[in-house]
Design a protein around this nucleic acid. Structure first.
Lengths: 232, 232
DNA sequence: CAGCTATGTTACAGCTTTATGACAAGTCAC
DNA sequence: GTGACTTGTCATAAAGCTGTAACATAGCTG
């Protein structure tokens, strides 16, 4: 998967650093802004997957900023978690009313913060397409995360599974090793092209018991192709 | 069982306090909201077992709010008792038409209120899916809250019971640890993903005596899957 | 056919994900 | 309170995967 980017908007440097440290360790990419103006400027530069917004900011209040973002079509889909020192029910309610997706009360544990971030991201990420794909007797079913050929389950490692799923979703088309790395491994991976060969080999090996390894064809000088047509 | 939570939506603080006092003493957990907006916001945070809704509210009328909630799949199962100062048959009918489960006329005695709440909760809690689920000789029966394999009862802790019930209700499908936390533990619990492993382990342990632990399968990199199908 | 390049295979050390057992804190009925 | 259960978290042990390097083959070019 791709790394998620989180924008933390808080005027206290200590908080930003703490959050940065915790979230980075949890595998997120963190960008900080110390006030609303900064945050807005940054938003024109890139699109975070989630925004952590302090309730009180020196220029525009976090509440107003949230309200503003939720009004703009471009930004309204970015989930927001409010950070607040206040504990009153009123504020909590207000925060949620303006469209924040959750709120965390200071002081908070990094564990809670991470848990809430995960929950919000999970809720807001679109459900994946989970149609089962079939080629002849070969079936890959994302819902059960299973691959089987006429009743016999095939065991694939995570990478081989993704590779096969990608191939079956995009049949009859050649992909270079680099393209496969981008599409199957993710965009920011730094892996040798030849590694793809190894995984193709592993996938073919599993498929070979049932003869379906022929579906994965080598296109010399170009890459690999998955062909839905069963070649005798 | 868990303590029942009741959301009281009324703009008069005196009423809220009175109800809070009475219901708390009766063993309920009470949360108050003074208007419909507040109530809606609160509903994103937790799920009450019942809502006491004033007929007239400052922003959206109680009637409209009730109608709205009953339309949404997520909330339509929460029983609603309308609180009304009016006594006309017309209103009574209207209230029930929109889907309220009962109504109480102000002024009301706390005894009456509690009695009606109990009645409504009793009536509305059973409609949960209570069917016993079976896989081969393994049976889980929500009515008796029991699990047994060919006559022998298995002892499961509450969490393991819910986990097994969830799995048996949703077979042949992978769930990530996070999804399981959402679905089995509830949406606003913030515990470690890895804790799921431990409960899976506990559940498997109990099932292992009868060999049914194999039904709970680990899908590396994806989560767990309960599968009745034994694919060779 | 020699020489060269692209692809196939295998082995493996390091790393990541799971499984497991132990534990302290929390609950609940007595 | 007390004792029997539960529960979430850790630390540690196991398993399972992954990316590379090295060597074997196959394919192409001239």
């Amino acid at each position: 998967m791709t790394e998620k980017t989180i924008l933390i908007v808080d005027d206290e440097q200590a908080i930003r650093e703490m959050v940065d440290f915790a979230l980075t360790r949890a595998g997120y990419h963190v960008v900080g802004a110390e006030n609303a103006g900064n945050a807005l400027a940054l938003l024109t530069q890139f699109r975070p997957d989630l925004i952590l917004l302090d309730w009180m900011l020196p220029d525009i209040s976090g509440v107003d900023l949230a309200r503003r973002l939720k009004k703009e079509e471009l930004y309204q889909d970015i989930p927001i978690i409010m950070l607040t020192a206040k504990v009153e029910e009123q504020d909590k309610v207000k925060g949620l009313e303006i469209g924040a997706d959750d709120y965390v009360t200071k002081p908070f544990s990094t564990r809670e913060l991470i848990a809430r971030i995960k929950a919000v991201l999970r809720r807001s990420s679109p459900p994946e397409k989970e149609e089962a794909l079939t080629v002849d007797q070969l079936v890959i079913d994302p819902r059960s995360h299973r691959v089987h050929v006429s009743g016999n389950e095939l065991h694939l490692g995570p990478t081989e599974y993704r590779l096969l799923h990608f191939f079956m979703s995009n049949p009859d088309r050649v992909y270079s090793r680099s393209q496969l790395l981008d599409r199957v491994w993710g965009q920011n991976t730094f892996i040798e092209d030849r590694t793809v060969d190894v995984h193709v080999r592993r996938l073919r090996k599993v498929l070979s018991d049932t003869g379906y390894d022929h579906l994965i064809q080598t296109v010399r000088g170009a890459g690999y192709r998955f062909s839905a047509q069963v070649i005798a």
